[in-house]
Simulated scan of single mutants.
Amino acid sequence: MSKHDFTPEEFAARLRRAREAVGAAGLDWLVVLHPVSIHWLTGGEAKSYQAFQCLLLAAEEKPLTLLSRGSDIGEWRDDALVDEAVSWGGPEPEDPIAAFARLARERGLLSARVGIEVPGYYLHPHHYVQLKDLLGGALVAEPTNLIHELKAAKSPAELVLVRQAAAHADAALHACRAVATAGRSELEVAAEAYRALLASGCGLPASTMNLVSGERLCYPHGAPTQRVLQPGDGGNIELGAAFRRYTATLGRNFQLGKPPVRLREIHAVVREAGDAMMAAIRPGVPAVEPHLAAKRIIAKAGFDAGRLHTSGYGLAPGFPPSWGEPLNMFGGATGVIAEGMVLTIEPPIFLHAERLGARLIDNVVVTASGAEILSHVPREIIEVG
């Protein structure tokens, strides 16, 4: 991903909307810290989110300034649409908050009304404390989702990349199917999926693959292991394809041989619950409604205790360790579904006592009339070997 992946006009429109939102929130400045927010505004995707970085975004037409570690500053200057890229550290260690303090004083943040993002993964607690101490009374808000809410509905150009990611996810799942045979390990199957993704032009996804088999089929987020597939094993896989950071996810159950009756029963309920979610999705619907539609079906079948995962969520052009957006479809959700959103559909049933589990994962684009499913892989148990 870089400033060349979208037109200058699209980036300019994003920046204009973001400045307007900062002003509407009663702020002079927003200190942008989430790598997805920075990526959406500038196109940059350097790995400096591993350390302290931020983008200074003013409500008025002032320079868009990025502060990042010195080892990545050249990449930012080449690939990001920023007016200035300022480095900290480099040949020798430096306190990044000291570098931020210099910028804050130069740009007048300490005498302005400032908001900061407080993302869960990308801001170290001691940096957060130092920022609060430094900004003092100038810090008046922590609108962490301000940028996320602007970017939740994807532009037509973004949806092109999402659809390409979905096609790559389909291909990677087919590649897994070809090697998911008795005698191969879970890691070997996962390796083929990653090979297919990387060879097709995708980058590594923001979150690692889930792949479980046999007695591990009851684990909702089990990573692939050295366990060797045996005849009669069931399995479940969730993979993500990241095309220029835009993510598509896909999940299916597979079976070496004929699926047992109990697994077919569980899988049928999961599939019905996912269908009900997709039928409930349309612009203006509260995000909790598709979740409740799935919950009713799973509970009626007697499996509510096995619903050990969110029913779905918004998908971002993610950075490790997550590709999720703030919108969730689970109990108590307060968001509202809008046209252009990309959502996962994945109501699950995982029964540890029975060593069984089923989850179908599909992505949909919210259209004016409902939900457009992106994958072309049948929503059935995949019988292999």
Rank of each mutant, 00 (worst) to 15 (best):
R262L: 10
R262N: 07
R262Y: 04
R262A: 09
R262T: 12
L263S: 06
L263N: 01
L263Y: 01
R264C: 08
R264S: 10
R264V: 02
R264F: 01
E265T: 09
E265P: 02
I266R: 00
H267Y: 05
A268Q: 03
V269H: 02
V269W: 00
V269P: 00
V269D: 02
V269F: 00
V270K: 00
R271L: 12
E272M: 02
A273M: 04
A273N: 05
A273F: 00
G274W: 01
G274E: 07
G274Y: 05
G274S: 06
D275R: 13
D275A: 08
D275W: 05
A276V: 07
M277T: 09
A279W: 08
A279Y: 06
A280M: 11
A280G: 09
I281L: 02
R282L: 04
R282P: 03
P283G: 08
P283L: 08
P283V: 07
G284F: 00
G284T: 04
G284Y: 04
G284C: 03
P286W: 12
P286Q: 10
P286Y: 11
P286A: 15
A287C: 13
A287Q: 10
P290M: 13
L292V: 11
L292M: 13
L292D: 12
L292R: 14
A293H: 10
A293C: 11
A294D: 14
A294H: 07
K295S: 13
K295N: 07
K295M: 14
K295V: 15
K295Y: 15
R296Y: 07
A299D: 14
A299C: 13
A301P: 01
A301W: 00
G302Y: 00
G302H: 03
G302D: 08
G302W: 03
G302K: 04
D304H: 06
D304Q: 09
A305L: 11
G306Q: 06
G306H: 00
R307M: 14
R307T: 14
L308R: 13
L308D: 08
H309A: 11
H309E: 11
T310S: 08
S311Y: 02
Y313S: 07
Y313I: 03
Y313K: 02
Y313D: 02
G314R: 08
G314L: 06
A316I: 08
A316K: 10
A316L: 14
P317F: 07
F319V: 13
F319K: 10
P320A: 11
P320Q: 14
P320E: 15
P320S: 11
P321A: 05
S322C: 13
W323D: 15
W323T: 14
W323I: 10
W323R: 11
G324R: 15
G324W: 07
G324M: 14
G324I: 10
E325M: 14
E325S: 12
P326Y: 03
L327S: 03
N328Y: 12
N328V: 15
G331S: 07
G332V: 04
G332W: 02
G332E: 01
G332I: 05
T334K: 11
T334F: 00
V336F: 02
V336S: 01
I337C: 06
A338D: 14
G340Q: 13
M341E: 13
M341H: 05
V342Y: 04
V342E: 12
V342R: 10
V342K: 08
V342M: 04
V342A: 10
L343G: 09
L343N: 10
L343Q: 05
T344M: 05
I345E: 11
E346R: 10
E346G: 04
E346I: 01
E346T: 03
